[in-house]
Design a protein around this nucleic acid. Structure first.
Lengths: 402, 402
DNA sequence: GGGCTTCTTTCAAGGCGTGATTTAACTGGG
DNA sequence: CCCAGTTAAATCACGCCTTGAAAGAAGCCC
């Protein structure tokens, strides 16, 4: 019920700087008059703010254009070289650390295999620290100019007094990841979020979610998760665990899920569940491949000839469509993005079917206002999205690194 | 991705006035030092702002208290008599118009029966206009001091160029309600929202939702709807139709819903569906009463003796619990409030069962952070909630009526 | 009554956004 | 080549805001 949190007149300035920075970051090079129009600020203020940002080196001029009889407008953009950020993708099989400039071009990377499915916290922490060390030492990178580290982890992240990670699949319970990293010598700011959420953030900024103020990014892998964006901001709920789409009940008298409940979406559409369902119908199991990823690919490829495979995939689309319908009815998003390696593998073939089933399980009006698309950034956007966390903080704070 | 919309230094003042007003409204009489602490403003600014508000007559002093050796602090509160608001509850059987002071005490009311289930828009508009006329003429009420009219309608409300109401149950299609009312002589501001949402707003402000920043109010009547509150604000989605909980798919191979889809929650837990299910199992139908409301009451009363009734109610609780579980997993709210006449009638007896089933269909962690409660304001809070719309606008704008 | 405490107002200082004005930069026509 | 016309950017004076400090107000306790 309470309003925003601005009070002093400097906060106002900070807010306007943020407005200008966000707009410049989102909509590429812009000239001052356009900025004034887009932000609603006066041209005088835009000149002032831009002057500050130019002095600080955050913004640079990017050439002049146009001129139908007047002074040409000078384009402005955020200097990609002003600072760098690091994104970390903690998975169950490996840790990936990438260094980006502000334009999100990758400057360096480090990759570490995990030997025990990520259950050993110390091994993961050591890998992250090694990765930070390595990419920070990359030629031409000033460690003082690294504005932050974003980390995407599989599991729930609790932002309390101390940041805690609960990772069911890796057996992590209340792991104080930030503290462990700081004790290991990592320098703040360290920002941690769920990997599905960071990937969703990446799609929102650079992929299929661009421009949508209300969107849901579905991350379909072995299991299924989602990242909800409302009013342009990631939605976390009261204890930061919103978006657990995997355990929506869609078949109240259906299969038992590994979570113990009955009829969860994940009991049908996660890669693991899809392969289980196929195996049940074809005990001879003709799919090639040892890991889920190649087996799902084989299943999709087989669907043209194998009626069982086609039926399994169609059922998947039907359940996923019902789940998407629930999202549409409940959240009324502008866009739904299907991502994750399994989502892309199956979605490439089945997007139309998914859309049809989703329509059947949605109210007409909200469905009309929703587009359902595939993710554009592939399955490797977790680190990219994680790296946007410090960037977003930087932009929203009006350009201070603190 | 964009920030809030403050730019000039006067907006800052307006924001601080709003902060003070919201706090005073929510937390009763407060003294200046407490306001300073709660809002984060300096005592000097609080004095300034309060001075303005006192001069404008919006705030009044409410006696001094305390004094352990110092000057006693003067309590402040919003003057309930500063202005009045009107709330309108448009139902399918009647139109109710109520006049409140700012403290939401009812000063006058008018009630009009509808003869044709509300299908005739003109009749509804005429009833509203008559009601406005009547309560505005109430003794001691200055028409110039009516700060606005809030209207709760059954159906989707589209806030586009022109406000349009789509009411499926009344057969309304794109009805320009505000325009019709203005042409009939009603004076703006007129604010319209879905009745479930206004009722949710009432529970948020004065009922079971107080203090929860993330909550879902479930309105269970003949059908079922919901009002979602995120970060303290009503959530509407991209085309203002969020919260259509009634057509969540919970039983993908289940009953056909009147909306045409299969397995909707509303096909099981709405009063109509509950009575249908009972009738299917007991074609002799021993329930007394002609309308849904008394028949549901009879069903609940019969459950102690009638095993079929008990089973029907238990199934209702199971489906409702699954639906609530979906809300918990997806939105991670702090509180879920069950209201509406059917929700209260059934919830009184079955809340524990609903909670148990909800727990079974929720992830452990988010469920732990959620409380599931019954609404406290009865089934007649639609008009009250509607009346809060202009009040909220007034408070958030810092005390201007424009 | 005189200290003491606490609330409330007043005051000067430092910032900020804005409209108006001025300066800058470029086009196009004679 | 120069000069009016046009648009962009910077500058200025003004009014408004918040704030810490200081002053004033209003009660308590001894």
């Amino acid at each position: 019920m309470h309003a925003s949190k601005l009070s002093t007149v400097q906060d106002l300035r900070r807010g306007n700087r943020a407005e200008v920075l966000l707009r410049l970051y989102a909509d590429g090079p812009l000239a001052r008059p356009e900025l004034a129009r887009l932000t609603g600020l006066s041209q005088a203020t835009v000149s002032n703010v831009v002057g500050d940002l130019l002095d600080a080196g955050i913004v640079t001029e990017a050439g002049a254009v146009d001129s139908s009889g007047g002074r040409p407008r000078m384009l402005l953009r955020i200097d990609p070289g002003y600072a760098t950020v690091i994104g970390v993708d903690v998975g169950e099989t490996r840790v990936k650390v990438e260094l980006f400039d502000l334009g999100m071009r990758e400057l360096a990377r480090a990759d570490y295999a995990l030997t025990d499915q990520g259950t050993d916290v110390d091994q993961v922490v050591a890998a992250i620290l090694a990765g930070l060390e390595k990419v920070s030492g990359h030629a031409g990178v000033d460690p003082a100019r690294i504005m932050g580290v974003g980390i995407g982890v599989p599991g729930l992240v609790e932002h309390g007094d101390e940041l805690l990670v609960h990772g069911q699949t890796m057996g992590w319970r209340a792991v104080p990841l930030v503290r462990l990293l700081q004790e290991g010598g990592a320098v703040p700011p360290l920002m941690v979020d769920n990997g599905a959420k960071t990937m969703g953030q990446a799609e929102m900024w650079f992929g299929a979610g661009r421009g949508a103020d209300h969107a849901v990014m579905i991350l379909l892998g072995s299991g299924i998760g989602a990242s909800i964006v409302t009013d342009g901001k990631p939605y976390r709920g009261s204890t930061t665990s919103a978006g657990e789409i995997g355990h929506l009940t869609v078949a109240i008298d259906g299969r038992r899920c590994r979570c113990g409940a009955i009829g969860c979406l994940e009991a049908y559409v996660g890669a693991e569940a899809v392969l289980d369902r196929y195996r049940e119908q074809r005990p001879d199991d003709t799919l090639t491949g040892a890991d889920e990823e190649t087996r799902i690919a084989a299943l999709v490829a087989a669907a043209d000839l194998d009626a069982v495979a086609a039926e399994v995939l169609d059922t998947t689309a039907r359940y996923l469509g019902a789940g998407i319908g629930n999202l549409v009815n409940l959240l009324n998003p502008r866009r739904i993005v299907l991502g994750g390696w399994a989502g892309l593998a199956m979605g490439n073939r089945m997007l139309p079917a998914i859309q049809t089933y989703a329509a059947a399980h949605s109210l007409h009006r909200p469905f009309e206002g929703t587009s359902i698309e595939l993710a554009r950034l592939g399955a490797d956007a977790v680190a990219l999205g994680a790296a946007t966390l410090p960037v977003e903080h930087f932009l929203r704070s009006g350009g201070r690194t603190d």
